[in-house]
Structure formats: C-alpha cells, structure tokens
Design a protein around this nucleic acid. Structure first.
Lengths: 203, 203
DNA sequence: CGTTGATATATCGGACCGATATATTATCGC
DNA sequence: GCGATAATATATCGGTCCGATATATCAACG
C-alpha cells in the first residue's frame, strides 16, 4: 500500500487534484497516514501513464489552474484488487518513545518538556478526529469504515495519553532520583558493558 | 532521529556488531522502531568515517568474523546532544486502518481475516514486550526508561486490541448489511461525486 | 502597496528499506 | 555421514518516499 494506491483510494470518493488529495489525507487519514506533495505528484503522474487515472486541466478564476484527476474503471479495479490481496502492515516510528528509553541521559527539564508536548499533541489529534466526525460530512456520506477507524484512533490515542498523564509524575521523579543519587548512577555506569549482544557465545 | 542516531544510542549500552544491533532493535524497540541491515550497515560505515564510533575486526571460532563497533566519546556526546535538541516525531503508517476505511469495498471474508490477523499480531507483540521485560535482563540492568516505554506499549496495544475485539462483530455485520442491501448500496453509489475536495468554490 | 496566507504544481537530494547475494558453521532428520 | 535447514554475519542495489525548496497567482489585511 504505497502512495499510488492511497491516491487511487481517495479518488474512489470523487475527482480531485493533487492539492485536494493532500488536504484529504491530512483531514481523514491524519493519525495513520502521511503523504507529502513530493510523493503525491509523482504518484499521480505514474498513475496517469498507467491508465489508472485520467487528468483534465481546469482553469479557475481567482486561483491557479488545477489538474483534476479522475479514476478510470481499470484504476478502480486495481485498487479493489490491492485491497483484497495486499498484506497490511502496521508500522510505528516514534522518536518520542526512543527518547524516553534514554531518559537517563536527558535533563529533567527536557524530559518534562517532551512528555508535556507529546500529551498536548495527542490531545490535539484527538480533537482533530472528533472534528472530522462532526464537522465536514454535511452533504456527503462518510464510508462505513470511517466510524470504525475513527473509533480506533480515539481508543488508541486516549489510552496513550492517559498512560502518559498517569505515569508522568512518578517517571520524572524516578529519573531525577537516579541521576542525582551518586550510588545509583555510579552503579549504572559500572554495568555498561556488552549490554547489547545477548549472544550465547563466550561471556 | 535517523538510523545513525539509533545505532549510537544502542552502542551506549556496550560494543556490538551490526548483526547484534538488528537483534537488539527487534527485541527492545520492537513496537516503535524498525531498522534493517540495509540501513544499519551503511549507517555504521558513516559513523566510523565521522569518528563517532570505532571498528575492530574480531575472528570467532565457529562463526563468521564480526566487526564490533565501539562508541567514542565524541559519539556519546553527539548522541546526548541529539537527545536534547532533536524534535521528536511520532508517526504511524497503517495499511490495516486504511483498508478498514475502505471496508465497503472488501469481501466479508477478507474483512474478517484482516481483523483477526491484526488482533493476533497485537497479541503477539504484547507477548514480546512482556518477554523482553521478564526474560533477558538477567545480569544486565535495563535503563530506567525501559519500564516506562514498555508500559506505554502495553497500554496502547492493549487498548487497540480490545477495541478491535469489542467492535469486530458489530462492524462486520454492519458492512455486510450495507453491501447486500440494494437500497443502501445504491444510495451509496449515487452519493459518490466530488467527495474529496472540500473546497468552498463553485459547488 | 507591501506582506502574509491560501491555492496550486513540481523537482531534487537524501534517507530509508526490502530483497537479494554471499559465506560459514551448527543442527537435525534420514 | 549426508543433505537440508537454520543461524550467524556482512554488504549492496533499486525503488520508494519525503522534506525542503522553487515558482506562480490572487485575496485580504493593515
């Protein structure tokens, strides 16, 4: 499921330009997908070459020209086939958690700032999901999956935020204690040795 | 926080080869980081050139030679500086959720298989985290952050799994109903039009 | 009338990652 | 003992992706 298929999927809901697609991804797939212009425009060009979408230039008054893309029947079929056959992957890449793992190397202020910022980010994203569910539909019908996906996002992110909230105090205190207590920090130093390879060879 | 910094971080726990690092990432950063050989080996080469790590060849009996990397003082400093200054990002890329959004285009069997597989995957990963916490420490001490990060992973993934478990039945039933009910599916068809661009222009 | 911000498209360099190639030895079934 | 499989170990290549950047138009605001 690369950016090309992402574009095909979005175009099943109607014609759109590259710019539209970016906005759509940001609003709808916010918490589990990202795609920048650097991916979208090349993808649309390749899809056009492959005959999965068609492109029509539209002049607008008051705005730059738009290239509006339209899903062909072949494109629709290709997307459905991908949905049926592709093996789904779920990847998380979090610098935040990585930094938390190295909390013993962080200054207390930095640690607290990181925690607070992450909590704020989660609150913000939760608000975005709730907006997307109430705000925009209006004349349009969201697909059946939208509610399920939004519910998932809310469940997962609420759990994450609550964990951070509930453990923040204790965690910061523990790290501070370890860093200022010479006994503990010295002990920690001593035990740094060949900590990475858990090999069964000579030890 | 790219692969290079990831390697520096792992090497703060002791010397290791590229192969060791991969295993370490899989065991420890399982749920929020991935790094393949295609990233690790080039990263180690560049770190060596930059003087942030040193490399020593080690012959082994019964195994191929190893190139063991050692963090230099400059490397340690560089890593700590990154921890203090880099802005953490938290990205989720999920084909699974994307497919769920397009549940109305999936066959019921496929939909159920996707849900069941994802639940099984989450159970497996949860088990891995619990193992990592009980199993390997032995003579080594986990950093203070490890417990916090593991707890986070368990909280987030448990919430995700429970959401899927609790909503699976209802969701599958709803999608099936919509797909077989000609009224609903027809209505849905009719409403596909310019669904993507939420522009304020002519409509 | 200049600045900012939204609309709109496009490209380039660098990072990354999966697949693949290669080589050695241990282990296990037959 | 022999072939197959798995684990150990390093390396590269092609393709994908993405952030930064460039360009252009027009609206709105002060």
């Amino acid at each position: 499921m690369n950016v090309k298929e992402l574009c095909l999927g979005a175009l099943t809901f109607g014609d759109a330009s590259g710019y539209d697609l970016k906005k759509f991804f940001e609003q709808t797939f916010n918490h589990f997908c990202v795609a920048g212009f650097g991916s979208i425009y090349p993808a649309l060009a390749e899809l056009t070459t492959a005959g999965l979408v068609t492109c029509s230039e539209e002049s607008q008054q008051g705005k730059p020209d738009r290239r509006v893309y339209h899903l062909t029947e072949a494109g629709h079929k290709a997307f459905v086939k991908d949905l049926e056959t592709a093996e789904p992957q779920h990847k998380v890449k979090s610098d935040f958690l990585l930094m938390m793992y190295f909390a013993h190397l962080l200054s207390p202020e930095r640690l607290e700032a990181l925690l607070d910022n992450r909590i704020a980010q989660l609150d913000k994203q939760l608000e975005l999901i709730r907006q997307a569910e109430n705000d925009p539909p209006a004349s349009e019908t969201l697909p059946i999956g939208a509610e399920f996906v939004h519910g998932f996002g809310i469940a997962a992110m609420t759990a994450a935020r609550d964990y951070l909230r509930n453990n923040r105090q204790r965690f910061v205190a523990t790290v501070s204690a370890a860093n200022t207590n010479p006994l503990l920090s010295t002990r920690r130093q001593d035990q740094i040795r060949h900590g990475v390879h858990h090999s069964r060879s000579e030890d």
